[in-house]
Design a protein around this nucleic acid. Structure first.
Lengths: 150, 150
DNA sequence: TTCTTAAATGCGAACTGTGTGCATATAGTA
DNA sequence: TACTATATGCACACAGTTCGCATTTAAGAA
């Protein structure tokens, strides 16, 4: 589970990563980082944009995208690309991990899944690939939407 | 491994699926199906288009997309959506299965992976989701590109 | 504090892959 | 062969993301 102190820690880590590269800390940038660090719901760029706008109404969407790009390059956020419906971002766990995605409400959860290392190394053996990344999405209907359905 | 008879079988299955719905069997449509049925390399829409054009030079890209959509709806092809670089299609195994993808040459392979049912049912238990689909991509460098590298 | 300047921003326009509207052509059937 | 609804080809629309460029500004120096 995410906690407030988690977000604070992530915020500081991201700021530090930028400072190390001598990137400037503009108010918009800091706000974007704050939103990404404390988000629990894998927001889209548009959602980040709207959230940021609450506090910095002049911020442009292009700035959000540029900062997302930068943070991606620094390995500080994880991008979940979806060809339809736009990408989603995780500023809390910026490393590859499985997701469970509700096809009704688009909610994205992080399940626990042991044996993933085993699975991956077995795969590397049988295919000869050097595995460097993965994307594991399970699609279904979340408990909440199941209740609503009937 | 795919064989010629596999493709023939898939071709017939797809044609049959269309016929059942009283869809017409135009030359372009049949050619698109043929290309998808015998493809082993998860082609993009553009690649299908070019392949089809070899035999039917007047075919338009829109027609390719419309037929891909139809075959998707009938569950006859699997779409692998990628936000960057376009979608890829599998007419041979039109059901969810894991992929191993080379980040250099974009080659896509189908590895064997047992225990997937176990994994999925365990996931359903712990999250409460009703899992209906999945998308499991492992990214890495294929043997061929590893050789080229050094 | 003020000055300096490279980096960041805001705006609009471009881009890419995919879908649509409409006029024309044609598969399937009588 | 004629009929009609479906399929096609073309151009254009669309959505999410990126880019070009003029303007602003963070961060360090004087």
């Amino acid at each position: 589970m995410n906690t407030v102190s988690d977000s604070r820690k992530r915020f500081k880590e991201m700021v530090e990563a930028l400072r190390e590269q001598d990137y400037r800390l503009t108010p918009q940038r800091l706000e974007i980082i704050r939103v990404l660090a404390q988000s629990r719901d894998h927001p889209s760029a548009e959602e980040v944009f709207e959230e940021v706008r609450n506090n910095f109404p002049t911020t442009s969407l292009a700035t959000v995208y540029r900062n997302i790009l930068k943070l991606k390059e620094l390995g500080q956020i994880l991008e979940l690309g979806f060809p339809e419906g736009g990408n989603r971002y995780d500023g809390n766990r910026p490393f590859p991990h499985p997701h469970v995605i509700c096809i009704r409400c688009r909610r994205i959860m992080d399940p626990d899944l042991e044996n993933l290392e085993d699975l991956t190394s077995r795969l590397a053996e049988t295919t000869g690939f050097k595995i460097v990344n993965h994307r594991l999405d399970f699609f279904g209907i979340c408990p909440g939407c199941q209740d609503k359905a009937e």
